[in-house]
Computed example of a mutant assay.
Amino acid sequence: MDHDFCNNDGARRLKQRIEEYWRERGYQVDVKLVEAGFVAAMRSARTDVRSDMVNGFPTKRASNEREQRSAPPVTRGPLEIA
């Protein structure tokens, strides 16, 4: 197994693993890949993996479309919110 997560292929695999891990647990995580270009200290180009997580934990639950469609609309005054 290739453990280099700084190159483009490794970063893409890591992104998929993070998203799948949290999706299976009912969370939505937004992970982006950012090309950082050549880094002199590494003597190579790198790809950064960035997300909207805080301290390694997701900030929002995944929406369950089936529950939202089957639930009755919530009404408040003259407006109906579906």
Rank of each mutant, 00 (worst) to 15 (best):
R61G: 02
M42W: 06
S63D: 14
R23Q: 10
Q28D: 15
R66N: 13
L79I: 15
L14T: 03
K32P: 01
K32E: 11
V49H: 00
I81H: 10
S63E: 15
R17V: 08
L33M: 01
D52I: 10
G26S: 09
E20C: 04
G37N: 05
K15Y: 03
C6S: 14
R13E: 12
G56P: 08
T59F: 06
S70Y: 07
N55L: 12
G77V: 06
R50I: 15
F57L: 14
A45I: 02
F38L: 03
Q16L: 09
A41Y: 02
T59R: 11
N55H: 11
Q28A: 11
A40W: 00
D30R: 08
A40M: 04
R46A: 08
N8Q: 15
L14W: 06
E80R: 13
C6H: 11
R23F: 06
A11S: 04
A82V: 11
S63A: 15
V74T: 09
A11C: 03
V49R: 00
W22F: 15
M1E: 14
E80Q: 11
M53F: 09
I18M: 10
A36P: 00
R61N: 09
G56T: 10
A71P: 01
E65I: 13
V31D: 01
M42N: 07
I81Q: 07
R69G: 08
T59Q: 15
A11G: 02
V39D: 06
E24S: 06
I81W: 09
S70T: 13
N7H: 11
L79E: 11
P78W: 09
F38P: 01
P72W: 05
S63P: 05
E67T: 13
S51V: 03
N64M: 06
V49A: 00
S70A: 13
R23N: 13
D30T: 12
E19W: 04
V31Y: 02
E24H: 07
T47E: 03
L79K: 13
N8G: 03
E24C: 04
Y21L: 06
